[in-house]
Amino acid sequence: MSRPRSKTWVLPVSVLLALLLGLLPLPGWLQPLRPYWLALVVAYWVIETPEKVGLGFAFAVGVVADLLYGGLLGEQPLRLVIMAFILQRFRARIRFFPLSQQALAIGGLLVNDRIVATAAHLAMGEPTLPWLYWWAPLLGALLWAPLFVVLDALRLGRRGK
């Protein structure tokens, strides 16, 4: 029995789409709810293809995000590398959780990401994000299951042939 061939274009396209979704202009009242798309996509790839995506990949994508988004240089790589490290450490457990439990774990990682971002802003003397921005990890956790299913279907292709 042969394994289905993975499609190599899905990884760069998904990262590019996540970067573009981070640049998408939103109305002021929706801005605090913007999920951290890049973290969700990197989390998927770290969990599913650890041989391709690791700490170096998370760092490189974070630098690109910093250059695109224009924030503190080094903040995005720090946030993504911390998340990727935690995911690598617990990958064997998280991978076999049902999607609902995976979503809770990802939500916890996104809350941790907000804590790291707040600590980085405080350390650099930058203003911290308003309290409404703490709702975005909840939305990210809710989006985990659909994102996982779509990326899995694209990565593996149709199985019922």
Rank of each mutant, 00 (worst) to 15 (best):
P77E: 01
W144Q: 12
K7A: 14
F96Y: 07
I115T: 08
L67M: 05
L17Q: 03
F148H: 14
R95M: 09
L24E: 07
L110S: 07
Q76S: 06
A58L: 08
K52V: 13
P12N: 11
F96E: 05
L23T: 06
L99K: 12
R79Y: 00
G70Y: 02
Y69P: 00
A145Q: 11
A39I: 08
F85H: 11
E51W: 08
L156I: 03
P27D: 13
L151E: 03
F85A: 15
L26S: 09
R114Y: 05
P146K: 07
L104P: 04
E48Q: 11
W144F: 07
L19A: 09
L151T: 15
Q76Y: 01
M124G: 04
L129M: 11
K7D: 10
E48K: 08
V42M: 09
A117W: 01
H121T: 06
W135D: 05
R5V: 12
R3C: 06
L138M: 15
G160Y: 07
L26W: 12
D66T: 05
A153F: 14
A123I: 04
T49E: 15
W131G: 14
V64M: 02
R5K: 10
P12L: 09
L33C: 06
Y69Q: 11
W45L: 06
A141D: 09
W45K: 02
L151A: 11
L156P: 00
W9N: 04
Q102R: 04
F90A: 03
Q88T: 05
L147D: 07
P12S: 04
K52N: 13
P35R: 11
L87Q: 02
V10F: 00
E126P: 00
P4N: 09
G140R: 13
L139C: 13
A39M: 05
S14R: 03
L16W: 01
L11K: 00
R3H: 12
E48V: 11
V64W: 01
V46H: 02
L132Q: 15
A92R: 11
A141C: 13
W45G: 01
P98A: 15
A153W: 10
N112H: 12
S2K: 08
R5L: 15
I86P: 00
L55Q: 02
L21I: 11
T49F: 09
A120H: 02
G125V: 02
V64S: 10
V53W: 03
G108H: 10
L139Q: 07
Y69F: 05
L23C: 13
M1Q: 11
A58C: 06
L73T: 02
R114K: 13
L67R: 00
W45T: 04
L26I: 14
T118H: 03
A92E: 05
L154M: 08
L139G: 05
E75F: 01
A136Y: 09
S2W: 00
M83N: 05
S6F: 02
L151P: 05
A58S: 13
R3N: 11
I86Y: 04
L156N: 06
G28W: 12
L17T: 14
N112K: 10
W29C: 06
R93H: 09
Q76I: 03
P50A: 15
F59W: 10
